[in-house]
């Protein structure tokens, strides 16, 4: 797993995806920081974090689109799958490489919190909870993108489909608002990514939310492993 993780992380930088991702991610965090905190003269960063949900929907597919589609296209997949490593370690190696880059992007809000702390009291508990929520959200989204990347050999297709799927997850709440059948609304609310995320940005930290995001990440990574198993046996 270590070798795949290191190579993949390096590949983010050689393919310049890392620079694009970090630049755009930090551009938006910077803008929302300025807009929500500096302009309003507040140390409450929840507004910024709330806005970051949509940015993740758009930017995380850039991070994941290449992961497996490029291997398939360049036929390097064959080298990976005939190496003495398990499929699980291939999938998780790549997954954690993307997650590490995402985590690096998340360090910027801490810098902003430090800047704010020189002007006034920063609620560090809130900052950490928000950070954790954004991290878990990314962890779940990246696993979705990884699965989609393993289904195609076209990066653009992987990117677009991932954006659509993540957008659908984002819009679950909107749809739920237009449905009148009780149990469907309940189920949709339960599956809603945004509702859980929003609750944390408002200060309602809930262990079940943590479990939810981690479960989603594990389920989608498991599905990715199944994709490779299935292809081998087909």
């Amino acid at each position: 797993m270590g070798a795949i993780f290191r190579r993949e992380f390096g590949a983010f930088f050689t393919s310049s995806i890392a620079y694009v991702f970090l630049a755009v991610f930090w551009l938006f965090t910077g803008y929302f920081f300025d807009f929500n905190c500096l302009q309003n003269g507040t140390t409450d960063m929840s507004g910024m974090f709330q806005n970051m949900f949509l940015i993740c929907v758009i930017l995380i597919p850039i991070l994941t689109m290449r992961l497996f589609s490029e291997e398939k296209k360049q036929k390097t997949e064959q080298g990976l799958l005939t190496a003495p490593v398990s499929i699980g370690s291939i999938v998780f190696g790549k997954y954690f490489a993307a997650l590490l880059l995402y985590t690096i992007a998340l360090l910027m809000p801490f810098v902003y919190a430090l800047i704010l702390s020189s002007f006034g009291m920063v609620e560090w508990g809130m900052v950490f909870a928000n950070f954790l929520a954004l991290f878990l959200l990314g962890a779940a989204f990246i696993s979705v993108g990884t699965l989609i990347s393993s289904l195609t050999e076209n990066q653009i297709a992987a990117n677009v489909v991932t954006i659509v799927v993540l957008m659908a997850l984002y819009l679950i709440d909107v749809v739920a608002g237009n449905v009148s059948i009780g149990w469907i609304v309940k189920a949709m609310n339960y599956l809603s990514f945004y509702r859980k995320y929003y609750a944390i940005t408002c200060g309602l930290f809930n262990v079940s939310t943590v479990v939810f995001y981690i479960s989603v990440a594990l389920i989608f990574n498991y599905l990715t492993i199944r994709v490779f198993e299935r292809r081998r046996w087909s």
């Binding site: 070798a3 290191r6 590949a11 036929k75 064959q78 080298g79 990976l80 005939t82 190496a83």
Partner: peptide, 26 residues
């Protein structure tokens, strides 16, 4: 194994690639 199309990562140097394979094969 050398497949019909060698599984090479084009963006890596030869040395870097072989080091990666060294790690991959433990």
């Amino acid at each position: 194994y050398l497949p019909e199309l060698p599984p090479l990562y084009l963006d890596m140097t030869v040395k870097g690639y072989l080091n990666y394979i060294y790690d991959l094969k433990k």
